[in-house]
């Protein structure tokens, strides 16, 4: 087909424009979170939240995980566009690690060194490593589906950010269940579990985000 003919066809199809990417992302993420919640309800149970929220360590781990997802979210809408460069928004990814570092520092100061090891190892390391990726997977799938609707020109980086976003939300859900509250436990195991989600995001995105 000649290029002029193709242009004629594209012009005739001009009413077919799809909805904005940002809205698609929001809708898909909402669906992903609902599926994750259903999964959570099926396999885990929340702790006594009313009492737990008042405990600083519990509130801290919720804040760190939520901050990770919140730092990644604005990057996602940007990376969904072909001309979207991460720019200064990439710094948002550092917020959660920084907060975690502060938490570790405080924990090391207030805890007796003899307790460090016990808190770090905790009782739920295996559950943490299994449940966080599991709870993140629906959100990751939904996010990648929405990115497919966009036109990302940095598919692997978009996959990494999608993994951090989904991993943050999955970790947030898991944190409401897990009785290990010490920032030392969070620092030892959460990043490992989230790294698995990030690796999945990167590999999947590289295959799926082609257009």
């Amino acid at each position: 087909m000649r290029t002029d003919d193709l242009i004629q066809a594209l012009v005739a199809d001009r009413t077919s424009r799809e909805g904005p990417v940002a809205r698609r992302l929001a809708v898909m993420v909402a669906i992903g979170v609902l599926v994750s919640l259903a999964l959570y309800a099926a396999i885990l149970a929340p702790r006594d939240l009313a009492a737990a929220v008042l405990m600083p360590r519990f509130a801290f781990k919720l804040a760190v995980t939520l901050l990770l997802a919140a730092g990644a979210a604005p990057l996602l809408t940007r990376l969904a566009r072909p001309d979207g460069v991460p720019g200064i928004l990439a710094l948002g990814l550092l917020l959660a690690p920084l907060l975690l570092a502060v938490g570790i520092g405080i924990e090391l100061i207030v805890l007796d060194p003899s307790e460090w090891r016990v808190r770090l190892v905790g009782d739920n390391a295996v559950a943490c490593l299994l449940c966080i990726p599991l709870l993140s997977l629906p959100v990751l799938t939904a996010t990648l589906t929405a990115l497919r609707h966009g036109a990302p020109t940095r598919p692997r980086f978009a996959g990494v950010v999608a993994g951090l976003f989904a991993g943050g939300l999955g970790a947030f859900l898991y944190a409401t269940h897990c009785p290990d509250d010490s920032p030392l436990f969070v620092a030892a195991w959460y990043p490992l579990a989230i790294a698995a989600v990030v690796a999945m995001g990167c590999v999947l995105a590289n295959r799926v985000l082609r257009w």
């Binding site: 594209l10 424009r17 904005p20 072909p82």
Partner: peptide, 9 residues
Amino acid sequence: IAVHLKRHT
């Protein structure tokens, strides 16, 4: 074609 199909981005 990509410009056309992805113009919502």
